[in-house]
């Protein structure tokens, strides 16, 4: 059995090499790393509203250094048009008059009160910090988690299906039907190769973007979640590749999965947008499992792990069944 498994593993690795899977993964790793380190981290921040003061008579004497003074009413109007989130204070008439572009009711109240508070700043106060991550660490972990999820759910899923479609096209699956080997090994070897490559990808992506010291503490949990997602997506890819007639049909299914399944998960998990039905979405729980692993919050229940295992078992049984059917097909 081990000899057969070794032969199958070797063959699958060769298939992936010839399909340029590894260079593609490496390319994506480089792209993601550049994006995180030179793009995302730099723009993923937002400062509080700018406050502009027009005070020709100099009536406001105790103004915070955060306030930007402008020289004329026209300048105030211009700067507010350019920065529609900013708040303008027109103190030309003596009493400060606030002017800003409409936001939401509550945000506008805060903007008004905040701007006024800067005219009489008190001592420097800092909020109490109870977490362990800095904003940059949080941003890095968040984006790395998203990219890893995307890579495994979209790219890896495509990769395994591509390899199987190639073998389907060559007709070699039915040759394996008459070889003296356990038929499950054919599926297991593919799962093993893709699982290993996903784990290596996860390690590299995390180390390069989250940092070595942070990675050390979160890596076991991240790898566990990666393994669960990898197996589920690999089995889904195998079932699609076996059930669908050709790669063209598969790309349609793949597009639908990549866009319409992943998008609500990202929206719900990374923003305050709450969709009521999201808790019924299986990918949401898997994504949250991965995110919790990155942030070191162990909120995954036994039900979650049982659910993942059940999904893997059901998918594997499905793949087995469809694979046996494929083996008996005509050329």
């Amino acid at each position: 059995m081990w000899k057969s498994l070794y032969s199958l593993l070797k063959k699958d690795c060769r298939m992936m090499v010839s399909g340029k899977f590894f260079p593609m993964s490496l390319g994506f790793l480089v792209l993601y790393t550049l994006y995180v380190n030179f793009g995302y981290i730099k723009f993923m921040d937002a400062s509080l509203y700018n406050v502009y003061l027009y005070d020709p008579a100099g009536t406001q004497t105790t103004v915070s250094t955060l306030v930007q003074r402008v020289s004329s009413k026209e300048a105030l109007d211009a700067v507010l048009l350019d920065d529609t989130n900013g708040v303008g204070i027109d103190a030309s008439a003596g009493e400060p008059q606030l002017v800003f572009y409409e936001g939401t009711e509550k945000a506008d109240r805060h903007r008004a009160d905040y701007a006024l508070s800067l005219l009489q700043p008190s001592g420097h106060y800092s909020a109490e910090l109870i977490g362990s991550n800095t904003p940059e660490q949080k941003a890095r972990k968040e984006i790395t988690c998203e990219l890893l999820f995307f890579e495994i759910a979209a790219v890896g899923f495509l990769g395994i299906a591509a390899v199987l479609f190639k073998e389907k096209g060559m007709g070699v699956i039915r040759v394996h039907a008459i070889l003296p080997l356990q038929k499950n090994l054919f599926i297991l070897s593919k799962l093993a190769v893709f699982l290993l490559s996903d784990l290596v990808f996860a390690i590299l992506l995390t180390v390069l973007n989250v940092g070595v010291s942070d990675t050390a503490s979160i890596l076991p949990a991240v790898l566990l979640q990666t393994a669960l997602l990898s197996l589920i997506m690999a089995l889904t890819g195998l079932i699609c590749a076996l059930l669908l007639k050709d790669f063209r049909q598969f790309t349609l299914a793949y597009l639908l999965i990549a866009i319409f399944v992943a998008t609500p998960v990202f929206l719900a998990a990374n923003t305050a947008v709450k969709l009521d039905w999201i808790y019924f979405h299986p990918f949401y729980h898997i994504y949250m499992g991965l995110k919790n692993a990155y942030f070191g919050t162990s909120s995954n229940s036994l039900a979650y792990y049982l659910g993942c295992l059940a999904a893997i078992v059901v998918l594997f049984a499905g793949v087995q069944r469809v694979f046996r059917r494929e083996m008996g097909k005509e050329g």
């Binding site: 060559m170 007709g171 039915r174 003296p180 080997l181 050329g331």
Partner: peptide, 20 residues
């Protein structure tokens, strides 16, 4: 099954081989 497949050889209608 394994013992059985060790004793047989099969030539299919089409030449199924790894093209690469």
């Amino acid at each position: 099954r394994q013992e059985f497949f060790q004793k047989i050889g099969v030539l299919f209608e089409f030449p199924y081989l790894y093209a690469n």
